[in-house]
Design a protein around this nucleic acid. Structure first.
Lengths: 241, 241
DNA sequence: AATAAAGTATGACGTTACGTAAGAGTCAAT
DNA sequence: ATTGACTCTTACGTAACGTCATACTTTATT
């Protein structure tokens, strides 16, 4: 495959491929007599890796280091990347929540501190580098910079986490063990804040689908999540009673 | 507020604030005699806007253009940003799916084309610019782009009317005839969109109170409405069965 | 076979969004 | 009066390409 083909395939520019060749990040496996770059399937797979890392904000130099490392394990890398993508999605969720909150604050419904206005932008602690360092130990010493989260945000946080988890599961069978465990968490979470019979719980699930406003709210975490939750909640309620 | 405070608050560097001042993107509202930058709350709100746009990949120059535009509407901007963040989250979902697929392909469970390996990276079509232009018309012509209030809004409308009516009644006895008529309307409305047993209906009412997010949403129509509705719904459900 | 059209190569300078230092003034507290 | 934490401006550095310019190859068309 020549440059353009790879470029179109992957969505990066030809210039970018040239650049990656220049800095030794992605050197084509072969060359024609005329000096044309020829990329192999292996090269393409590497490019995929590179783009994942890049999307996660790694500088190219770091990416090169990682790929060059003899102990580099593709599978492990994919798993890390997956985790980081999920984390990033969580960050987006936080930002969306911040927008919603800001809108309500703008309407005067609630108050909002200046600090809250930047929640989700958590650039301060770049979690990616951190994770990568934990995993592949760039430095010997990793400080334990634990944050203290306020009680209120913790709740919101927990909700978000449960929703996010459910969103990840939303393609599996609602009656499966995984799904039921996650929905059970939801049940217990709600019960901490109120009193919930299994029937009410199931009714709540119905409601997620029946009331479009709530459907939208829930489906923010993933398309079809509301329906999935309703199904899972029904199964859960049936099994409880 | 001086630079450092704003920097720590928002998570950007002092240098970044200097830079934004230099290019006229975020000019502090005041200065001390010594030339120290003094940021107002308004400045902070603007910075929030800027960071949202930045996160979405807008170049600073474009952001400045947007903010400078006299027709700039913060609320509208937030809504657009929200949509774009959701879209970006969808992109992340696609990338996560791609990783999962790649992992299974690596195990030989399935096959995967080279094209599929880059799904989710859709950089080719930058939807943001497009959206922004649609929305705020880089050209003057876009004003006539009124939305068609489709069936969707009509539903919303009916819901709002019922809520409003209930809100008016919220001080009377939930078991009274008036209240029961109104809540019956609600029951039928929901049943038009789904199947609702009386129990589920009552459960939904419980839920209005138990889940703070929904409580807040409902109480927008009147303080205490959620509790009132729960009570009315319980009575209604009991009488139905 | 000739020629146009499309693809590719190598410089080399431009650009964006800051980072990073240098040197100097300012402010609050000891 | 002096330290230490902030702040200022100026200025060069850098990362990841974009954007020409110029020249060579390959493919398609007549």
């Amino acid at each position: 495959m020549k440059v353009k083909e790879v470029a179109e395939l992957s969505g990066v520019s030809v210039r970018t491929l040239h650049h990656y060749d220049d800095i030794g990040l992605l050197v084509p496996e072969d060359m024609t007599d005329a000096g044309y770059r020829l990329y192999s399937d292996d090269n393409v797979a590497t490019l995929q890796q590179i783009l994942f890392f890049r999307e996660l904000g790694f500088p190219l130099k770091k990416i090169k280091e990682l790929l060059d490392r003899p102990s580099f394990d593709r599978l492990e890398a994919f798993e890390l990347q997956r985790e980081m993508l999920v984390a990033k999605r969580g960050q987006l969720d936080a930002m969306i929540a911040t927008i919603d909150k800001t809108l309500r604050a703008e309407k005067g419904e609630i108050k909002m501190t200046n600090e809250e206005k930047f929640r989700g932008f958590d650039f301060k602690t770049n979690p990616y580098e951190q994770e990568a360092r934990d995993r592949w130990g760039d430095d010997a010493v990793n400080q334990a910079n634990e944050r203290i989260a306020g009680a209120e945000d913790e709740l919101q946080d927990r909700m978000n986490r449960i929703y996010t988890k459910l969103a990840e599961l939303r393609t599996v069978d609602p009656a499966s063990q995984e799904a039921q465990e996650a929905i059970g968490e939801w049940f217990h979470f709600l019960n901490r804040m109120g009193h919930y019979s299994p029937e009410a719980f199931a009714g709540l699930g119905e409601m997620y689908v029946a009331d479009e406003r709530f459907t939208k709210n829930i489906d923010r975490f993933g398309t079809g999540l509301a329906i999935f939750m309703r199904d899972a909640m029904k199964v859960y309620a049936d099994r409880q009673s």
